[in-house]
């Protein structure tokens, strides 16, 4: 083994230990619900809990709505900025990053304060709170969705493709749905999975706007009350996130192999 290679591997190993040791310890702890033996009983308890399934179902539905509205908002916005208003790109990027800078707790109190009164009254009904939650998540996930779509858009020659389609007689709808969206498939999927991964386990906004109906607050409740189950649910949520990440990688690899989205040049 070369000297440089040894040091590289050493650093990888140290990084790996730093990341995996706590996880392994949590996993080990989650298996010790019964004294003296290793058992999956904590996982069984979680999977048998109807609240686990109802909260995860609820969060998944909310996440899907978030994804839908997020794409509907971000793709045309990024497209228009790249096509007609490139000077606004920095500003919009800055705005999209604000939810990183403003703590979720501040954001959620602001939202509740504004949308619980006249003229919105969104917190007066369940439907209203769902709308508020989805809208809040669209803002919260903007940094991911904007970046993913913007990067995807930069890989294709948006202006030339648009102009080519226009000169061939296409209207804006045809251009967006037949030319732009299909060429952003990978970017949109990346954005979808990042949004899903963020929204499903989100705690702060969910607990203040909707409460125990969603998965984040449920995880927190389990963590407070059930010692071993809290570790098992941590592992479960990690596995779910990894599964989503692997799907992104898979799509990216498929893209790299067939190169169908390498742009019009």
């Amino acid at each position: 083994m070369k000297r440089g290679s040894f040091w590289s591997w050493l650093w990888v190993a140290i990084g790996g230990l730093y990341f995996f040791l706590p996880l392994l310890s949590t996993f080990d702890f989650s298996l010790r619900a019964k004294k003296g033996i290793l058992t999956f009983v904590a996982y069984e308890n979680i999977f048998k809990d109807p609240q686990f399934w109802s909260t995860i179902r609820f969060s998944l539905v909310i996440a899907l709505f978030t994804v839908f509205f997020s794409i509907l908002l971000v793709v045309p916005t990024v497209y228009w900025i790249r096509l007609r208003l490139p000077q606004l790109r920095m500003l919009v990027e800055f705005i999209s990053m604000l939810s990183y800078v403003i703590p979720a707790i501040v954001l959620v109190f602001g939202l509740i304060r504004v949308f619980s009164g006249s003229p919105f009254y969104l917190t007066n009904s369940y439907f209203g709170t769902y709308v508020l939650l989805v809208a809040a998540y669209v803002v919260l996930t903007l940094p991911f969705s904007f970046r993913a779509i913007d990067t995807g858009m930069s890989a294709i020659d948006v202006r030339s493709l648009t102009e080519a389609a226009q000169s061939l007689g296409a209207g804006w709808g045809t251009i967006l749905f037949r030319v732009i969206f299909p060429n952003l498939k990978v970017a949109i999927l990346s954005s979808v999975f990042l949004t899903l991964a963020t929204v499903i386990g989100e705690y702060t906004m969910a607990s203040f706007i909707i409460g125990l109906k969603s998965f984040g607050p449920y995880m927190s409740l389990v963590g407070q009350n059930k010692t071993y189950e809290s570790s098992s649910i941590t592992i479960i949520s990690f596995l779910m996130t990894w599964a989503l990440m692997m799907v992104i990688q898979l799509f990216n690899r498929t893209k790299a192999n067939n190169g169908t989205h390498s742009g019009g040049r």
Partner: peptide, 10 residues
């Protein structure tokens, strides 16, 4: 006809 061809990649 564009310099960058502008064929639809999809």
């Amino acid at each position: 006809v564009f310099q960058s061809y502008a064929l639809f990649p999809n």
